[in-house]
Design a protein around this nucleic acid. Sequence first.
DNA 1: CGGGATCCTAATAGATACTG
DNA 2: CAGTATCTATTAGGATCCCG
Lengths: 123, 123
Amino acid sequence: METKKNDKFSNVEDCPIRNIIDRIGDKWSVLVLLVLEEEGTLRFNEIHKTIQSISQKMLAVTLKALEADGLVKRTVYPQIPPKVEYELTERGSSLLPHLHGLVSWAVGNMEAIQTSRREFEVS
Amino acid sequence: METKKNDKFSNVEDCPIRNIIDRIGDKWSVLVLLVLEEEGTLRFNEIHKTIQSISQKMLAVTLKALEADGLVKRTVYPQIPPKVEYELTERGSSLLPHLHGLVSWAVGNMEAIQTSRREFEVS
DNA sequence: CGGGATCCTAATAGATACTG
DNA sequence: CAGTATCTATTAGGATCCCG
């Protein structure tokens, strides 16, 4: 992607909006963040049990991305069998109110949106 | 995707969170919404000029999806050459405050996140 | 001018098997 | 237990051409 004059929004790397959308806009990140907020500290398999429809691979990938951004803290207990715990960082916690804003909007508007979609289909 | 017991978050169609993330989590929707908010009513090519890095196809696809969800209103003026205007609906406008919350968080945390990513890389 | 139709590629997600 | 590796299927996105 090339940045041109007059294009305020093209520079992906430096655009905070695009950056954050790229992070939470994937398939699972928001869900994982909400689960960690609701349940507190969880082990890998505990998260997996809460979100059964995610694959092991995608959960690992998602957690690693969240960890890289400093939204989730990963603690390894060097024992056998291994134990790894995940929890929100402060930065992660500070994001959640904004996600809740989105969630409440989504809950409040989902039905109307689905109706709109159906009407749009037939037209 | 199959819904199982104990999995509160797997049912994509009915999960408002997943629904809204699927909509705004694509590459361009949020940007288009923000542009329409900032600039008001715009023609297709005016949006394109503001976001030059989007392809014509993706702009059309994005606008159609936003229209289907009732977030954007599309008005056709039947004349030659054709004129089509886009503007936010009330529902679209009601979403924007929540997006702004996200945006402000993103702006405030982007630098720290980028630092975290770099540190994570080398480790 | 505002797209739609088509074709193509790159990125993403899932299934499965394996491992320290 | 908590992943990784590999492979395949699906999807998103871009390029190009065309049309009313």
